[in-house]
């Protein structure tokens, strides 16, 4: 990832007249900052997601913030290694799991004789409250997986017709 041909300073997001610009430059400042900031951002995202029922926020906002943590790590430590760290199948499983979780809660209400997503028929303590919380978590999983997936898919780029990947 960090091939050090050419000076590192002048080719970041630079006008690519002769050679294509490299999106990743190893910077100790960025790496140290992300190392410190990432746990706090992740905590904030989890708080916004799980506490969305009682304060501002919810699954969508929290999911975006959690997804941003992976984007931060990818920018600091290189997109390629991060992409290998979080495998494609894990991302796909997460997003599909989120959709199935949301739809599954709706179908569970049907099983107990209610309408689709009618939480209160599910025989659980405070079913509506916890149903809403679980739905928010499902949304959070979908959104965080999608944000990370969009980032990695854009970074990987268009697959050329001759089979070579636009890998970088």
């Amino acid at each position: 990832m960090s091939d050090s041909t050419g000076t590192a300073a002048d080719d970041r997001l630079e006008v690519g007249a002769e050679r294509p610009p490299r999106p990743y430059v190893e910077s100790p400042i960025i790496m140290a900052t992300v190392r410190i900031v990432a746990p706090f951002v992740f905590s904030l995202g989890a708080f916004v997601m799980f506490h969305g029922a009682d304060s501002a926020g919810g699954g969508f906002q929290g999911g975006v913030i959690v997804g941003t943590v992976v984007l931060l790590i990818a920018i600091a430590f290189g997109i390629g290694p991060t992409r290998e760290w979080i495998s494609s199948s894990l991302l796909t499983l997460l997003v599909v799991f989120g959709v199935l979780l949301f739809a599954g809660i709706g179908l569970t209400a049907l099983v107990f004789g209610g309408a689709f997503l009618q939480y209160e028929v599910i025989p659980v303590y405070e079913a509506t409250k916890y149903g809403i919380e679980l739905v928010e978590v499902g949304i959070g999983i979908i959104v965080s997986g999608t944000v990370v997936g969009l980032f990695f898919a854009l970074a990987a780029g268009y697959r050329d017709p001759d089979g070579t990947e636009g890998e970088r």
């Binding site: 969305g52 029922a53 009682d54 304060s55 501002a56 926020g57 919810g58 699954g59 997003v95 599909v96 989120g98 959709v99 949301f102 739809a103 709706g106 689709f116 997503l117 939480y119 405070e126 509506t128 409250k129 149903g131 809403i132 739905v135 928010e136 499902g138 949304i139 979908i142 959104v143 997986g145 999608t146 997936g149 969009l150 898919a153």
Partner: peptide
């Protein structure tokens, strides 16, 4: 609903079906 944030109550409770549609739209965007 037992949920203190009225926005969340409307989004995931009263309008849960709409929100399921939105979540699927995000999925479809990917």
């Amino acid at each position: 609903t037992g949920v203190e944030n009225a926005v969340t109550a409307v989004l995931a409770g009263y309008r849960g079906f709409d929100t399921l549609g939105e979540a699927v739209v995000v999925f479809a965007a990917l």
